[in-house]
């Protein structure tokens, strides 16, 4: 493709003779996302909103946004939302859920929010079997504050606060919190997914749909961890960051179900 010809579509109407197979759902607002190019947040936002549209529960769903890169999630999700303090999303979601038992509730949190400052709220919400979905974006780094170490940062991984790579003696081990949560009796469905390939995106969407269906059926706490990239924090292009993620993140955070229908699944990887 030495001389690429460009097709510039100026209209938004469907070309004659074709039908729309994918378009932005109206459950997403028209706001341009502030995320860095290639960041997985946008994909997960999109999937969540697609599922709400498909299940026709936009008017019954309340989201809780965290502190971190996705602090502005409510700018993009066209639903009622509450912005929680750092780490408190699971507590805020508990309050919403307990007062509105017939609605759908989810929190959307990063690794710092969920697995560092909000560990207590996270674990106890899971242990109570709170009937909501927690979407957990694990990219092993603090993106919003400029690339510091996260609880999920890999051993040896360089961040602005582990310039020589994370060393266990100072900073402990990467926190596999989803595995911990899967062991709690209150957790009904715990899965680890990614959104770096079309196939992975399809699987994650299925997982989200499943979690909302569990919530509808009052099965209890569901956690979907999405192992994601942070091109800016990792200092890589989006495409390279996804390759790096496959090679480095997945061995520590292997994809797949950790618990389905309340039953622990065989361990994979570390």
């Amino acid at each position: 493709m030495d001389n690429p010809r460009e097709v510039e579509m100026e209209t938004v109407s469907c070309p004659e003779g074709l039908e729309v197979v994918w378009e932005k759902p109206e459950t997403l607002t028209g706001n341009r996302m502030h995320y860095c190019p290639g960041c997985g947040h946008g994909v997960v936002h999109k999937l969540l909103m697609e599922v709400l549209k498909e299940m026709d529960i936009q008017d019954k769903t309340i989201g809780v946004a965290p502190v971190g890169c996705s602090v502005f999630a409510y700018n993009y999700m066209n639903i009622d939302m509450q912005e929680a303090a750092h780490g408190r999303a699971a507590a805020v979601a508990t309050g919403v859920r307990r007062m509105l038992p017939d609605k759908f509730v989810f929190s959307y949190q990063g690794d710092g929010d969920l697995a560092a400052i909000g560990t207590a709220e996270t674990i106890h919400a899971a242990n109570r079997g709170e009937n909501f979905l927690v979407v957990f974006i694990n990219n092993g780094i603090y993106g919003m504050t400029g690339g510091q170490m996260a609880p999920t940062t890999l051993v040896g991984m360089k961040t602005s606060t582990t310039p020589g790579g994370r060393d266990v003696e100072t900073s402990g081990f990467p926190f596999n919190i989803s595995r911990l949560i899967a062991m709690l009796p209150g957790a009904y469905y715990v899965t680890r997914q990614s959104v770096h390939t079309p196939g992975a995106v399809r699987k994650t969407k299925k997982a989200i749909r499943k979690a909302f269906e569990h919530q509808r059926d009052r099965k209890g706490y569901c956690l979907i961890e999405v192992v994601s990239n942070c091109p800016s924090g990792w200092k890589m292009t989006p495409v390279v960051s996804n390759q790096w993620m496959e090679e480095n993140m997945f061995p520590s955070y292997p994809l797949g179900d950790l618990k389905t229908d309340g039953v622990l699944q065989p361990l994979k990887g570390n």
Binding site: Q82, A91, V92, G95, M99
Partner: peptide, 26 residues
């Protein structure tokens, strides 16, 4: 009433935030 003994005061006040934000008297 929904009455919950929770893991900390930190959690409690944020549940109040969530519950009252959802329109309930909390």
């Amino acid at each position: 009433m929904v009455v919950m003994q929770v893991e900390s005061e930190l959690a409690a006040i944020n549940m109040v935030y969530g519950g009252a934000g959802a329109g309930a008297r909390v």
